[in-house]
Design a protein around this nucleic acid. Structure first.
Lengths: 137, 137
DNA sequence: TTAAACTTTCCAGTATCTGGAAGGTCAAGC
DNA sequence: GCTTGACCTTCCAGATACTGGAAAGTTTAA
């Protein structure tokens, strides 16, 4: 099948599929006219990558996951270690974002959001903790 | 003061300060020898940006925040709107990451992580929902 | 025959720095 | 006076993961 159908079946834009080929992630055959040609194997790989990416694995991690998948001598410990590392990164990221969210939502709450220029958000950003705090009362 | 001290006082790497100058975010004076020269105003701006970036605002949002800060005719509504937009983006990102975390932690839990190749994580990525599910019991 | 819908390659741009090379400046110590 | 080391300068390239667009070739349908 051509790249358009591969795109439909994998859920990946054609551009992205070509990009994955460029970086050596998923090869494809070629027809006589130069068009890429995909079969079940490739679609399976593409879907595997799509799913992995949707779970936040980096492209390089996808490469590793694919090679583990293809390796009959892999151990589930290897796979699990990779997933755990990634999970920890996600949890770290969530904590960082939650910190931002908490601070920001406090600031947004204390800001009147009216026509006047006085703004605790700007005061906080400016490091004017005192002004920011007093506005917060 | 020179860029090294500006870096210490602002918490930004010298490289980053130069970058911010490149993109027209914070200008600096120059000494006769060509070295950048910073005063209290610039340090204040750099700290403002550092704080804004630490709350996840993009560099372009920082540019807007700075111009609002410098504008005596701003309204707190404008600032608040920007912060709210950003807050919503953060909350969206958190929800996305939380979804990944939930799926991943389930997968990690069901994986034995031993020397054997059978792995529910890979089964899930491969779209083999049945195998993945049965391993999950 | 013609037009639409595909496909190809290649180049550039996004966001936010970061690393490194090659070289200039300055202050301290011998 | 000279060297050494810590600064500073500019400029170029790379990281991540695509995405947009141009120019051109191919196929399909009307």
């Amino acid at each position: 099948m051509k790249i358009g159908e591969a795109s439909d079946l994998s859920g990946l834009p054609a551009k992205t599929i070509r990009y994955y080929e460029d970086i050596g992630l998923v090869q494809s055959g070629r027809r006589e006219n130069g068009y890429r040609d995909y079969g079940g194997q490739e679609i399976h790989k593409l879907r595997f990558i799509q799913r992995s990416r949707s779970l936040g694995f980096t492209v390089e991690q996808c490469r590793t996951l694919l090679s583990l998948y293809d390796d009959p001598d892999r151990t589930s410990a290897d796979v699990r270690a990779l997933a755990e590392t990634h999970l920890e990164e996600i949890e770290l990221k969530i904590r960082e974002l939650a910190g931002m969210r908490d601070t920001l939502s406090q600031l947004v709450e204390t800001c009147h959001g009216d026509h006047r220029p006085d703004c605790p958000i700007l005061n906080d950003l400016a490091g004017d903790a005192e002004t920011a705090r007093s506005s917060r009362v």
